[in-house]
């Protein structure tokens, strides 16, 4: 096709009236299509980046190997239950850690590629964008945990499935908490700028000592135990230890953790809405395009 400045050349069929081109913007079909766009974009980015694929496996494997051999050493010192406890903790911690990191990094990718403004001038709504990031993170979490679980079984003979049916609520509760933390990290970046992006990696570690990942919460000082009770992950790790000790799944604790998760997500989404409104009001969103 030849294009000239006076616009006289033959024109391709793409300039037809576009009224039927898109689904009605508020329809469910349009919303589903927009979320799919976010997910496919991130999946394509993952596929095109061998480093990112490598990273899904690398860090979890490093943690597993280090902690695995620590547990073998402790076991040789006749410390009871230590293999299953610590390996279970390492694996479940990765669920929380990955859920938080992957969603936050998905958002940061848009900043790093100066694509954030392109995203914010699409009709993709904040909940749709977040849903896309969350769905994409599921893929990476599943890949990472599967690799770790296989490795744990092959090297240490620890089967993650020994946790039993409790694995489902444990993982779900940790993922939801991780996503909530990611929304908080994203909100901080929106509010304070790119300098706050370190929170995407570090915020989850604030909760590691409180949640009793590798030890019972009872070893914490009493004031910290009160705080830990309001961390959903605390109940998951306590529950995991109970199950691996041969006990039943403490469903009451799981239910409480579920309530806490709902509160965490609600607060995180509220914070995101507030900081996005603030970023638009103060012109901070525009600056991410510079």
């Amino acid at each position: 096709m030849t294009v000239s400045t006076n616009g006289s050349a033959e024109f391709a069929p793409s300039l037809r009236a576009g009224t039927a081109l898109a689904f009605p913007p508020l329809s469910f079909a349009a919303r589903r299509r927009r979320v799919t766009g976010v997910v496919l974009r991130d999946l394509a980015a993952l596929r095109r980046s061998p480093v990112r694929v490598f990273e899904i496996i690398f860090w979890p494997v490093v943690e597993l190997v280090v902690w695995g051999y620590v547990t073998l050493f402790l076991e040789s010192q006749k410390v009871p239950f230590v293999v299953s406890m610590l390996l279970g903790a390492v694996l479940l911690w990765q669920v929380l850690h990955r859920a938080s990191n992957e969603v936050a990094i998905g958002f940061l990718e848009d900043i790093w590629s100066r694509n954030l403004l392109n995203m914010h001038v699409t009709p993709v709504t904040p909940p749709e964008y977040m849903t896309g990031l969350v769905l994409f993170s599921l893929t990476k979490i599943a890949a990472g945990i599967t690799a770790m679980a296989l490795l744990a079984y092959v090297i240490y003979g620890f089967g993650l499935l020994t946790v039993g049916i409790g694995l489902v609520p444990f993982m779900a509760l940790l993922m939801i908490m991780g996503w909530a933390l990611a929304f908080v990290a994203i909100s901080c970046v929106l509010r304070f700028g790119e300098g706050a992006q370190v929170l995407a990696w570090s915020l989850v570690f604030v909760f590691q000592p409180l949640a009793g990942v590798f030890y019972p919460v009872s070893v914490l000082p009493q004031p910290l135990q009160y705080i830990a009770a309001f961390v959903p992950a605390t109940h998951v790790f306590e529950g995991m230890r109970a199950v691996l000790n041969g006990g039943a799944i403490p469903w009451d604790r799981m239910a409480f953790a579920g309530v806490l998760d709902v509160v965490y997500v609600a607060l995180a989404l509220w914070l995101y809405a507030v900081t996005l409104r603030h970023a638009r009001a103060k012109g901070r969103l525009s600056r991410f395009g510079e």
Partner: peptide, 30 residues
């Protein structure tokens, strides 16, 4: 509405086809 600016970027690691496909979906195209 749509927007283009010389100072904006696009996801660098993606193929052009993938960028356009994903944005087409983000605009809810049938």
């Amino acid at each position: 509405v749509n927007f283009s600016a010389s100072y904006l970027g696009l996801p660098g690691v993606l193929h052009v086809r993938e960028v356009l496909d994903s944005f087409a979906r983000m605009y809810g195209l049938r």
